[in-house]
Design a protein around this nucleic acid. Structure first.
Lengths: 214, 214
DNA sequence: AAACTGATCGCACGATCGTTCGGTCATTTA
DNA sequence: TAAATGACCGAACGATCGTGCGATCAGTTT
């Protein structure tokens, strides 16, 4: 048959893969993708090292699968919650504050997964780097599109420099994550939110579209 | 004697240590402090592994010495060039643009050394993390003091929120580094410079104190 | 001259790494 | 029922890791 009643073996394999990846993204957000170790994962999850290996094919493939698993978590916690909002300034602001929440709540124990592993692989070559670079491009492009939609909705100054704005917004978000994780402190999220709101007010056609300053 | 004519043995040791650290900071800026390996350093520099080990005592001590060596380079390339400028907006701007130059010129092949290794150790515990956190605090404090000096010089609005301003400036600088290294691209430095100048104009008592926008 | 110190080396250790291979067992396909 | 497939395991491999020990040799101190 073409699509049979789900192969039990493959289903079991996928389940084990998910179990491994759940732990892998946690480890990688703290120790990096290089810090992942097949033996450590196998021991923690009471599997055999060769079993873990066989499920992914190589360490690099495990790393790539870990990145894909983290993307799923990221989409779920950052992108999805704002998915149904109408285009406009509020949509953009919700994405930014949602990102700050995602980092603050330590969905990944080491803070934002992509901040950690992108810094780890930014100056290296290979598939992992390329995947992370493409992932970042996707996120930036998505934010830029959100801004353009807000422009079309008449809530953002059509003369605003979109890539410049998104550059500044992402800078503020990632700095909040970096300072918070490094110093075990959470006021940096307030600083980032304040700066983001201020910057958004600068391009808003109507300041009442944004929440009040604290 | 108290201060004799320099012990030739110790001088030779320090020389070798410097040789090792020169390469170590390069490696660490790309592969991280965990990516440092005594054997690799020994092979590259035609030394024995145990010799390298003996000069530092342990891998952690090598990592800490590498951080100290990077601090020296950082001070030399970022802080020193602006040292003799009088307090004021120009001093602050020179520090920011000097940082961008330091990152752009790849003084460390992996971009800013501290961006790389701070992201690597931000969620870990131990002396390396603590040293990096303290180093970052020093840098932020130094920038804040520079802003306060500019306030006392009458060039920055005395009502400006100093920690907030420094948070935003460092966010922009580090994002320029991150995007440039990850995407092998250099326009991010222009974005950062543009945003920094714009933010500084917002707190300047006289906009003529800053260079013109491009 | 003798004793000492520190840089540097060769060698070996136990641990861990990613990977390979051959096998067992449950499930699906023919 | 027989053959094929895929998850999973145990054991072993070569490599590399950080570290320890003892020796050699140059320079310093007595």
């Amino acid at each position: 048959m073409t699509a049979t009643h789900t192969d039990g073996r493959i289903a079991r394999g996928n389940q084990t893969r998910q179990l491994i990846l759940k732990r892998a993204v946690e480890i990688a957000s703290v120790d990096g993708l290089e810090g992942l170790s097949l033996g450590q994962l196998a021991t923690e999850l009471k599997l055999s090292k060769s079993g873990v290996f066989a499920l992914f094919g190589s360490k690099e493939d495990l790393q790539l699968a870990t990145v894909r698993a983290a993307i799923k978590v990221y989409l779920e916690h950052v992108v999805q919650p704002a998915r149904d909002l109408p285009p406009g300034l509020d949509h953009l602001w919700r994405l930014c504050s949602g990102w700050l929440d995602y980092s603050r709540k330590r969905i990944f124990p080491g803070g934002c997964f992509f901040y950690s592993v992108s810094a780890e692989y930014d100056a290296r070559e290979g598939k992992v780097h390329d995947t992370l670079a493409a992932t970042r491009t996707n996120w930036v492009t998505f934010l830029e599109q959100t801004v353009r939609d807000a422009q079309l909705a008449g809530e953002v100054d059509p003369a605003a420099d979109v890539p410049q704005l998104v550059f500044e917004l992402t800078a503020l978000m990632e700095m909040a994550n970096a300072e918070s994780v490094l110093h075990h402190e959470f006021t940096s999220y307030d600083k980032a939110a304040k700066a983001i709101l201020s910057r958004l007010r600068g391009v808003a056609t109507d300041p009442a579209l944004l929440p009040d300053a604290p």
